[in-house]
Design a protein around this nucleic acid. Sequence first.
DNA 1: TATAGCTTTGACCAAATGGTCAAATGACGT
DNA 2: ACGTCATTTGACCATTTGGTCAAAGCTATA
Lengths: 206, 206
Amino acid sequence: MARRKPRPTIREENERALIEAAEWVFAEQGFKGATTAAIARRAGVPKANLHYYFPTKEGLYRSVIERVLTAWLAAASSFDTSDDPTLALSAYIGAKMDLARLMPLASRIWSAEIMRGAPIIQDFLDTTLTEWVASRERVVRRWIAAGKLKAIEPRFLFYMIWATTQQYANAAHEMATLNGGAPLSDKAFQRAKSEAIEIILRGVAA
Amino acid sequence: MARRKPRPTIREENERALIEAAEWVFAEQGFKGATTAAIARRAGVPKANLHYYFPTKEGLYRSVIERVLTAWLAAASSFDTSDDPTLALSAYIGAKMDLARLMPLASRIWSAEIMRGAPIIQDFLDTTLTEWVASRERVVRRWIAAGKLKAIEPRFLFYMIWATTQQYANAAHEMATLNGGAPLSDKAFQRAKSEAIEIILRGVAA
DNA sequence: TATAGCTTTGACCAAATGGTCAAATGACGT
DNA sequence: ACGTCATTTGACCATTTGGTCAAAGCTATA
């Protein structure tokens, strides 16, 4: 009984459009600064319709955050593509840089959430992220023990990688200003990516 | 005529207390999320009194930002303490790390402002910051030409330094979570500082 | 101590905002 | 064609919030 009729098209499509609009507005204005009216406007629907699909603003924000988490985890997996620290770190830093470049809104929302003390994703920090870090810390320590890396504290390496890569999403406007007003070109971004990889790799190589 | 009586004590003291309270609330809640009522409450004065000293919320925010700029510039000056890249970069990274540790509120407000696209401090980015970067880029290029540094793009080095150091203010909560709930101890922070300095220095050394 | 100018504060206001509701409209299987 | 359920939407509401005001309280100096 209670069979769920799979008639998702209209609902699915509207939710997708609303989440997309919400991502933009939340990234631009922050959680408090974002208004449901602005999100609805950007999605091209009346505000009441937004509240039909997402009863509360926080619920909508949660849905946006879920998308961000998915992207974060996908990039994180690239750490595990190799047992060689040079390859693994290159892949990981590269993936995080690409994430910041291709999903700047998600990256900014993530940073803002972290800066606010993670009121919504605390659970993720406590479980998935904690486990991910613990596990990869072990990998890094193994590399150190094998003489492949300097004896660094793995966590600080992760912090540096996270900070540096996220910077290209968070501070895109500042970078544009320092670039004469124009956003980083693809070429400049590729150079930034390879320099980030090279500096960090040289910095931690044994 | 119209001589300004230098009777600053009451006004000065109240403005200071309000700016201090505002710094806390703005850092915690963001510009939109901060309410003048919350700031006044934290400063221990009625809201109307806050508006007597700072007619508008934005004006108060500007005053807070000014403090932040001052701190930023002070830290920036440590870049110029030496002509040797190792010493200069060590001093600069160390100063920025200390700034994040000692003035986390200011650091977070700065980051939030940058992330929002610098609506208030755009002028600072266009003038002081642009000049500072241009000038220090020249210094770095000179070091490169003298064979003291790898041929990196100076700007990307600054981005990495800014990002890494700010991380210790912006993500303090995330770090605490990954640290079993407790904030970084002074000892751990000192280690983070020296590792950041070492990794970056090794990363850019010729 | 008179008084001119600061400072304090409770009461108040208009606008903005998250959310509600009920009526209207549309989709779709039978 | 019908009936049921999902969707749409304009009007509406309570609360929050930045900001105002006028009256009252203070301070210091001539």
